[in-house]
């Protein structure tokens, strides 16, 4: 039986829920490394705990975004047709891969996330209708020609943003990859979904965040169900984490609507990079000793 301090786990959940929903990256990037590195919990159990916690975070965030009409539900459902099979593939791969390999893959993903947060200029396109870029929303109702076209009100610029959806096959492919990564590593998969939707499919950032949250709830459920029935979910770990991420997600989602948090992204990016190095060292240590 695995036991850990309730208040420490709740604090980890709170931090993960807050930063995950504020930065749109999902709390799994924090939960898995902290559980494995600091609390010495086996990585498969950390991944299972992370996935169940992300269901709580993403449901909380998706509820608020859907209420604000940021979510393109039809698009989310369509993309989930490839994400969910990817999630099943990822969950099975994780069960058969050695923990050292999972640590190494997780580290590589963390390094990529840290790079995009700290070194690389922010390449995602925020909702500025005046910009001539791939994600520039179309503000005339006549542009709303396709079934997936949608609109939402953006209080930051006091305008209703209408947009079309393009490159659907690219979105389906990116979603499949996001599904695999989600269940393999216990993350939401937003690190793949957001760039795919925003840069590849021309969806404005806020609509991409809302739709991504809606999708992550479904994707992580598929992965979590596989881990649940395989016996990797422990109540002593999951209960305080759920409470923590729930409170963190509520706070983070409210803050996300008011801030872009570039400084926060960079500080968090550095933290992620250090965590990646620690996980890589752990993976290498296991590889060297076995």
């Amino acid at each position: 039986m695995i036991e850990a301090n309730l208040w420490i786990l709740a604090s980890i959940g709170l931090l993960a829920g807050l930063l995950g929903s504020m930065l749109g990256i999902g709390g799994g990037l924090l939960i898995v490394p902290i559980l494995t590195l600091a609390l010495k919990i086996p990585i498969q159990i950390a991944i299972a705990s992370s996935l169940v916690s992300i269901v709580a975070t993403s449901c909380t965030a998706a509820r608020i975004y859907a209420k604000n009409n940021w979510t393109n539900i039809r698009l989310g459902l369509l993309l989930e047709t490839t994400t969910t099979p990817g999630a099943i593939v990822g969950a099975f791969a994780a069960a058969f891969l050695a923990p050292s390999i999972l640590n190494a893959v997780f580290s590589i993903v963390l390094i990529y996330v840290a790079y995009t947060m700290v070194i690389c200029k922010p390449n995602l396109v925020w909702d500025d209708p005046s910009k001539d870029n791939p994600a520039t929303p179309h503000n005339t109702i006549s542009e709303k020609s396709s079934l997936l076209a949608c609109s939402y009100y953006d209080p930051a610029i006091n305008e209703t943003i209408c947009y079309k959806v393009r490159h659907i096959p690219l979105g389906l492919g990116g979603s499949f990859l996001a599904g695999i990564l989600s269940s393999l590593l216990g993350i939401g998969g937003g690190i793949v979904k957001l760039p795919t939707m925003n840069l590849g499919m021309g969806i404005p950032m806020k609509a991409a965040i809302g739709t991504s949250s809606f999708m992550i709830a479904i994707t992580t459920t598929v992965g979590a169900v596989v881990y649940y029935f395989r016996g990797y979910v422990y109540p002593a770990i999951i209960a305080p984490l759920i409470i923590g991420v729930f409170l963190g997600a509520i706070l983070g989602t409210e803050l996300a609507q008011r801030t872009r948090g570039i400084l926060l992204r960079r500080i968090f990016g550095l933290f992620i990079f250090i965590t990646a190095m620690l996980m890589l060292l752990k993976a290498a240590h296991i590889l060297w000793t076995t």
Binding site: A56, C59, T60, A62, R63, I64, A66, K67, N69, T71, N72, I73, C150, S151, F214, A217, A239, I242, I243, F246
Partner: peptide, 23 residues
């Protein structure tokens, strides 16, 4: 679309809150 969003939002709210209370 708005009606769909409201219904989905409500179903999520009920599910999450019931789950949290149980935890």
């Amino acid at each position: 679309e708005k009606r769909l969003n409201i219904w989905v939002s409500t179903s999520l709210k009920i599910g999450v809150y019931v789950s949290i209370v149980m935890v």
